[in-house]
Design a protein around this nucleic acid. Structure first.
Lengths: 133, 133
DNA sequence: CTATTTTACTACCATAATAATAGTATTATT
DNA sequence: AATAATACTATTATTATGGTAGTAAAATAG
């Protein structure tokens, strides 16, 4: 039940961007240095967040990354869900057909409940609160 | 945030044992067949549960595995914690010293909260309920 | 209009973790 | 003594993770 480094790096990078909200773009290199993350790797981590509109970018001199929405409107469930592809502890939770035993499996119910409490908790906290701004 | 197959297999195997509680040992091979798990792999999965006393075994003819406690007294948090070694989504939650940024990291607090809700949820469900006996 | 700065995209690689298999040793029962 | 079962140790195949490298494209500054 470990979170990937992608989820952790994305969270920290977005906290960084929250602090610069509406103060112009921040260079990837600067985010990476401040948070002690490989810039090249962070590039890949942030890419899907860009696609989903949580992050926007501007190329060229003076460019960089910036938040696509208000930090108060972005919660952790979104972030983790985008970079990890799911918040379910087991595949069968999202898609029962993935497991041939889904109809009789006694354990599946609890994994669904587990996903639900994780989602609830992560949805309850916004970037604004995390960055305490 | 995926659960390992160890955690899933252990849970299913223990549900199986719950159903035979106080009806004598169940052969590993039988548990494995019933749940569609490799017997040899399941052997390794159940080993730490044996060490921790959740499961007991008897060798030789007529032997097998059986629960070391009442199914009502075993909750999922115990099982997952034993086979995965931790219930924390990030190492720094169990041991802050593992990360040099632990004092200033803004994200750590939420990972602690996440661990707590996961533990709470998994503790709330016993093998007895899962096996609906 | 060109030099520079920055992200976008594609490809690759090393390591570690995961899941599983295999074989022998040991213990208990019949 | 034969058999049935777990205990233990080693090995292996596959996948996921985390990271690096290099080129392309876009935007800006001068």
């Amino acid at each position: 039940m470990k979170l990937s480094t992608k989820a952790r790096y994305a969270t920290r990078a977005l906290i960084e961007l929250s602090r610069h909200y509406e103060k112009g773009p921040v260079r990837l290199k600067d985010i990476a240095e401040k948070q002690g993350i490989s810039a090249k790797y962070l590039e890949q981590v942030l890419f899907p967040l860009n696609i989903q509109g949580l992050v926007r970018t501007r190329k060229g001199s003076g460019g960089g990354h910036f938040l696509g929405k208000d930090p108060g409107e972005i919660n952790l469930a979104e972030i983790v869900n985008i970079v990890e592809g799911s918040l379910a502890p087991v595949e069968c939770v999202d898609d029962p057909q993935r497991c041939s035993r889904h109809e009789t499996c006694e354990a599946r119910h609890i994994w669904v409940r587990l996903r639900d409490v994780v989602v609830q908790e992560l949805e309850s906290i916004s970037l604004k609160e995390l960055a305490n701004i």
